[in-house]
Simulated assay, not measured.
Amino acid sequence: MSKQIIITKTGEEGAIFIDHLEGKVLTAADERPEWADGLANAMLAERSGWYEKRLGKQLSAELARPETIAFEDLEWIGIDAEGDEVHLEADQDYRMDKLAEMMGIDRQDFDGEKNFKNAIASAEVAHTYATQPTSEATLEEAEGQSFTEAAKAAANG
């Protein structure tokens, strides 16, 4: 197993290497592509937890311990131009697209024609409010007195 993970950025040239356990950027600052300036540490555990939470036992070893990861699929700790620490969030759309691809779901299928084409059954549920046929006599029997007697007692009480 490699001790380095290759990080690439979609639509950009170049790559960097990070440590496979700690996420520390291993590529020297003067050898990094421009998009990687200031990056210090990739948050690998956050990424693994995100996918594990959604896939559970279906999380593949390839996804849990990849050889290559897209920059967008990670949260990062870095240093900005002023020397302050910054936190970069992972691209949630990137992750959702990747998850949908693994699950065979088309995220653009808004009316469900592709995602649910193999559904066994579908149902429309119409709910109407209906009251139970309960008579005053039944309630009187349960209460032991009539409504009018209870109302009189409350008024006089």
Rank of each mutant, 00 (worst) to 15 (best):
E12Y: 05
T138V: 11
F147I: 06
K117D: 06
K57F: 09
Q58Y: 14
A155C: 01
I79R: 11
L44V: 07
L26W: 08
Y94D: 06
M103P: 01
M1Y: 07
E62L: 15
A155N: 00
Q58H: 14
G11R: 01
L59V: 06
H20E: 10
G56A: 13
A90Y: 04
R47D: 05
N156S: 15
E113L: 00
N118L: 13
A137H: 03
E124H: 10
D30W: 04
A28Y: 13
M102V: 02
A28E: 13
Q132R: 12
E143L: 12
G112W: 02
G78H: 11
D93H: 07
T148G: 00
A64R: 14
A28T: 00
A81P: 03
P33I: 10
G56H: 06
T10C: 09
R65I: 05
G23Y: 07
D91E: 06
H87F: 14
E124D: 06
D84E: 10
T8P: 00
R54F: 06
A151S: 05
E52I: 08
G157P: 01
S2R: 14
A40F: 00
R107S: 03
T134Q: 02
V125C: 05
I120K: 12
L139T: 07
N156P: 01
Y129F: 09
L139R: 08
P66K: 01
D80P: 03
K9N: 08
G144F: 10
A40S: 09
G11P: 02
E149V: 12
I77Q: 14
E46I: 14
T68A: 08
E67M: 04
R107D: 03
A151C: 10
I18S: 07
G49A: 12
A153D: 12
D80F: 09
I105H: 04
T134N: 06
E101Y: 03
V86N: 07
V86I: 15
K117C: 02
L63C: 11
M96R: 15
N41D: 05
E85W: 04
A151K: 14
M102R: 12
K98S: 08
Y94I: 04
A61Y: 12
D106L: 05
A150V: 01
A36W: 01
H20A: 11
W50M: 07
F110R: 09
L26Q: 11
E34Q: 13
W35R: 00
A45L: 15
A121Q: 08
A150W: 07
L63N: 09
D97I: 14
M96A: 05
M102K: 02
G56K: 08
E31I: 01
A40T: 10
L55I: 07
T131Y: 04
S48Q: 13
G83A: 08
R32M: 10
R95F: 00
R32N: 06
A70S: 14
L39I: 06
E89W: 02
A15C: 09
T27Q: 03
D106T: 02
L59N: 03
K114S: 02
A100Q: 01
E89A: 13
G11T: 04
Q4T: 15
I18Q: 11
E141R: 14
K152N: 02
M43H: 11
V86R: 15
